[in-house]
Design a binder for these strands. Structure first.
Length: 358
DNA sequence: TTCCAGGCGT
DNA sequence: ACGCCTGGAA
């Protein structure tokens, strides 16, 4: 991008567009720092429409930092259920404790203090500083990277050090005169609504005359993305154990995938093993309970990271009075079908529960 | 059915 | 550098 006059044109066109086109979102009603913080973390991973639903439910349940700090981790995970990346929910909860203990329950207007909180990195700290407090900190998220990759027709990955530092410099310069709250939001909003990853609306873009990728016909090749990693298929089986009308669930360790969430015992098939054999074996290895009457129920698929999981579920019983000994989990419960909703489950297990209730 | 997004912690 | 997670778009 050109310096001086070019940057001024850029900023004015961007701010005019934002003034006329910004969406009416719940956290834009007050710009309360707690609202901005939670919405930024939620929106990092969630499409806007779903994010608004989760945000509104969250604020109803945890209207302020104190109510969040008073809540159990289970309640917080339940409110986050379905969003994925559950460490983020645990981190928000942990940060609320720190804010209460060290900052009187208030979000500090201090970049370094924000950065030191669990789950807050450079992006979120800059977003809270600029959007909540209107301070001149550049925010660089994927929207901003994509927008500038196209404006400047950058042929290298945006994460490259020199490329990234150049972008930081441009934004810092513009923020010397632009209003931080509106400017940063405008960049991200334009990236989300117009300069979209697929099907960008270049005909409606207020920066079209300044876009080098548009002029060069390379919009769809920008930004340059790193090569995708291969998807790995894995097959798993789980045992839905029913005894005296209740179902056995166990809670995953907090340092593991889906930490703190609940599940039916299960695991990966070994070489040459059938799904039913794996379900019974995993149940025994994880709980020392012996399955009888294994009955195929449903097969569901879900994804995490670069794995595609096919999960075979089996109903089963046990013959003797149960006293499980846990080897893969931190707690267990016997729960009636109607009560399962109170516990947070990973996506695949929630699919199974939905089928059980039909 | 496949592909895709995306900041933080380790 | 890599793992975390999911639902919706293509």
């Amino acid at each position: 991008m050109k310096k001086g006059k070019g940057q001024l044109l850029f900023r004015n066109a961007l701010l005019d567009w934002f003034g006329a086109n910004q969406r009416d979102l719940p956290w834009r009603r007050t710009y309360d720092p707690y609202h901005i913080w939670v919405s930024e973390v939620m929106l990092q991973q969630t499409q806007m429409e779903r994010g608004v639903e989760y945000f509104n439910r969250w604020m109803e349940r945890f209207p302020d930092i104190r109510s969040l700090a008073d809540a159990s981790e289970q309640e917080v995970l339940k409110a986050w259920e379905g969003l994925g990346y559950y460490s983020r929910a645990r981190n928000i909860r942990a940060a609320a404790d720190v804010l209460l203990a060290e900052y009187g329950g208030v979000v500090p207007e201090d970049y370094a203090a924000l950065l030191a909180l669990p789950g807050i990195g450079p992006y979120t700290a800059a977003a809270v500083m600029s959007i909540a407090f209107n301070q001149p900190y550049p925010v660089i998220d994927a929207n901003v990277e994509r927008l500038f990759a196209r404006i400047d027709n950058v042929a290298r990955p945006m994460k490259e050090k020199a490329v990234y530092q150049n972008l930081e410099k441009i934004l810092a310069t513009m923020l010397r005169t632009a209003p931080p709250r509106d400017f940063n939001q405008a960049l991200m909003e334009l990236g989300a609504l117009v300069c979209r990853p697929r099907n960008p609306l270049c005909g409606e873009c207020p920066l079209g005359t300044q876009c080098r990728a548009l002029a060069a016909g390379t919009v769809m090749q920008r930004p340059v993305l790193p090569p995708r990693k291969e998807t790995i298929d894995i097959v798993m089986a789980c045992a839905i154990l029913k005894h005296n009308g209740k179902f056995f669930i166990q809670q995953r360790r907090s340092d593991d995938v889906w930490g703190g969430l609940w599940e039916f015992p299960g695991g990966r098939l070994k070489n040459g093993e059938s799904a039913a054999q794996a379900a019974a074996r995993e149940l025994y290895e994880e709980t020392e309970l012996r399955a009888v009457n294994l009955d195929p129920f449903r097969t569901v698929t879900h994804h995490y990271t670069r794995y595609r999981v096919t999960l075979h579920a089996f109903f089963c019983n046990i013959s003797k009075v149960p006293e499980p000994r846990l080897h893969a989990a931190t707690a267990f419960r016997w729960v009636a079908l109607d009560e399962l909703d109170r516990y947070p489950f990973p996506s695949g297990h929630r699919q199974l529960i939905a089928h059980m209730k039909r």
